[in-house]
């Protein structure tokens, strides 16, 4: 039996006016039919930093993350506010396709298209009206370099993306996202299907990418959260329990539930 913790006792940091934020949610609630999967999430994400979302499986991390770029549309009911550049993008009138070009997403399982490596990157660009060949080529190189994949694939851009290894496929998915030049990048356990060496590569890539993008990464791997993130949010049964700088979260967790989770003596 899972130990009972009070959902009242939380420690969620806020940021002062001076911190520029990439995104922010207020009272975010998510329902899958009658299943209330996310309660009152109030989180703010500073620009050009990596924020990690941690917590046990089923605690609502993916549910929360997918709400941020409206990927839960048609799957779940999301209420509350999602602020992005002073616009509440949870409004039904918002152009979700436009939003998703600004807020990119990388999924748990690498999901490159069954197309060539080049076509993986240019397909969506072209669909959005970028037709100039030279410019497309430039984006291919830039995004593959950004995802630290260029050197490995520069001679085989016309090969099927499915012929790449899992780690390469995941970096291709990252490249595909950043080719859209988003400003926020959402990653849902991007390394859970990868071997340790590929994981290190993806992590290095993320550390490099935070100079240009604001990154929110879900991970069930606490070492990973500790290695890459600046702040960390801990989710428990659909509640955000603690949100603190990563150093604090791992050395000095504020509330019993986080203490137990970090110590591995959970439930």
């Amino acid at each position: 039996m899972l130990k009972q913790y009070s959902f009242e006792e939380t420690a969620v940091q806020t940021f002062d006016e001076k911190t520029s934020l990439a995104m922010k949610t207020e009272n975010l609630q998510v329902f899958y039919g009658a299943n209330h999967a996310m309660h009152d999430a109030d989180l703010a994400f500073p620009k050009n930093q990596i924020t990690a979302l941690i917590g046990a499986s089923g605690s609502g991390k993916s549910t929360y993350l997918r709400s941020l770029n409206r990927m839960n549309d048609g799957i779940a009911t999301v209420t509350g506010k999602i602020w992005y550049h002073n616009v509440d993008i949870n409004e039904p009138t918002v152009n979700i396709y436009e939003i998703r070009r600004h807020i990119g997403m990388v999924f748990q399982r690498p999901n490159p298209f069954a197309k060539s490596i080049r076509e993986n990157i240019v397909y969506a660009l072209r669909a959005n009206g970028l037709k100039n060949k030279a410019e497309l080529e430039e984006r291919v190189e830039k995004s593959l370099r950004g995802a630290a994949l260029w050197d490995e694939v520069k001679d085989s851009l016309d090969k099927s993306a499915l012929s790449l290894s899992g780690g390469q496929q995941q970096r291709l998915c990252i490249a595909r996202s950043i080719a859209m030049e988003p400003d926020v990048l959402l990653l849902d356990e991007p390394c859970s299907a990868l071997d340790p060496i590929s994981t290190v590569k993806v992590e290095e890539t993320l550390l490099e990418l935070q100079k240009k993008y604001s990154i929110i990464i879900v991970t069930h791997n606490m070492q990973q959260a500790a290695r890459v993130s600046s702040q960390c949010a801990f989710f428990h049964l659909g509640h955000v329990m603690e949100y603190t700088p990563t150093g604090t979260m791992f050395s000095n967790p504020q509330i019993p539930v986080t203490q137990d989770y970090i110590a591995g003596s959970f439930g």
Binding site: N69, M71, Y97, E98, I99, R100, R101, G104, M105, F107, R109, N111, P112, F113, A114, A124, N128, C173, R176, S177, M180
Partner: peptide, 10 residues
């Protein structure tokens, strides 16, 4: 996951 990939790119 292929559909999600497409949708997530706008």
């Amino acid at each position: 996951s292929q559909r999600e990939a497409g949708l997530s790119l706008g």
